[in-house]
Simulated assay, not measured.
Amino acid sequence: MAQKFLAAVCFLFLGTGALYAQSVDEMIAAAKQLEKQMKESEALLKYKEVLKIQPDQVEALIGASELSSREGNRQKDKDAKARYFNEAKSYAEQALKVAPNNAGANYVMSVAMGRMALISGVKEKVAASRDVKKYAELAIKFNPRYAEAYHVLGKWNYEVANLNFLERNAAKALFGGLPDGSLQQAIANYEKCRKLDPSFILNYLELARAYKKDDQQTQAMEVLKKAVTLRSIHQDDNAIKADCKKMLEDMQ
């Protein structure tokens, strides 16, 4: 009788564990579906729900970090931006603690640090930019076909190539300088991203800007013409295509 009771208890706990795991998997699947529907605010909330149940769930941490960076970028108020970007960094840090060799965890950290750099003062911007490069390169190390990580490296090269006098002096004072960044390398990174993921619309806009900055007008216009024909996948894609269209009109 006692053996039957113990067997029943074990079955109950094992069954509960299976249902628990299934519910988390279903919640993550629901979050991804919301992303596909371009409902990123709702997807972010769903990832946060997962993390209340399972705080170290890496896929949810990565998703929450990436979407926090995107949500923050949409905010008009600088303080609101900073709150989202800090959350993105916090989720990325936790993901890296759990899975330091995970390409996605390193990628979202590079994105979070890049977003922080764009709203920071000169010294903070320079300091953050070093981490952007570090984590993007780690993402590529762990997944050499990580298109978005090449995009981040392209953005890093573009921004470093266009640092102003104060920023370059800050980099020299803090770190003895920054690694060389160039428009040519930015273009190479963006083109690598485009080869790996031809549907990534933001990459087209940034690639066109780099070509234009490098006085390659024809190439810039060709990239923009292609961008406006692509199907929107992410919530911001329609706005990005509108920016591409305006840039193309201004160049014609």
Rank of each mutant, 00 (worst) to 15 (best):
residue 227 A to N: 06
residue 122 V to W: 05
residue 166 L to P: 10
residue 160 V to Q: 00
residue 149 A to R: 09
residue 186 A to D: 05
residue 179 P to Q: 02
residue 170 A to M: 08
residue 223 V to C: 08
residue 151 H to S: 15
residue 135 Y to G: 00
residue 197 D to W: 11
residue 140 I to G: 03
residue 195 K to F: 12
residue 163 L to T: 02
residue 148 E to M: 11
residue 227 A to G: 04
residue 203 N to W: 07
residue 175 F to E: 00
residue 212 K to G: 12
residue 199 S to G: 11
residue 136 A to K: 05
residue 152 V to L: 13
residue 160 V to C: 03
residue 221 M to E: 14
residue 195 K to E: 11
residue 206 E to R: 15
residue 174 L to N: 05
residue 129 S to L: 13
residue 115 R to A: 10
residue 166 L to Y: 08
residue 172 K to S: 07
residue 118 L to R: 14
residue 215 D to L: 01
residue 117 A to F: 00
residue 206 E to I: 13
residue 148 E to P: 13
residue 194 R to E: 04
residue 158 Y to N: 09
residue 219 Q to D: 13
residue 210 A to P: 04
residue 114 G to P: 08
residue 181 G to R: 05
residue 178 L to N: 03
residue 208 A to Q: 09
residue 170 A to K: 00
residue 131 D to W: 05
residue 208 A to M: 10
residue 175 F to I: 03
residue 203 N to G: 10
residue 158 Y to F: 14
residue 196 L to E: 08
residue 189 N to S: 11
residue 169 N to D: 12
residue 131 D to H: 10
residue 226 K to M: 10
residue 196 L to A: 04
residue 215 D to K: 14
residue 182 S to M: 05
residue 197 D to A: 10
residue 186 A to C: 10
residue 127 A to P: 05
residue 111 V to F: 15
residue 173 A to M: 12
residue 172 K to D: 09
residue 160 V to F: 00
residue 141 K to A: 01
residue 176 G to W: 00
residue 137 E to N: 03
residue 138 L to T: 01
residue 119 I to W: 07
residue 204 Y to D: 07
residue 143 N to D: 02
residue 178 L to C: 06
residue 196 L to S: 04
residue 159 E to Q: 15
residue 113 M to P: 07
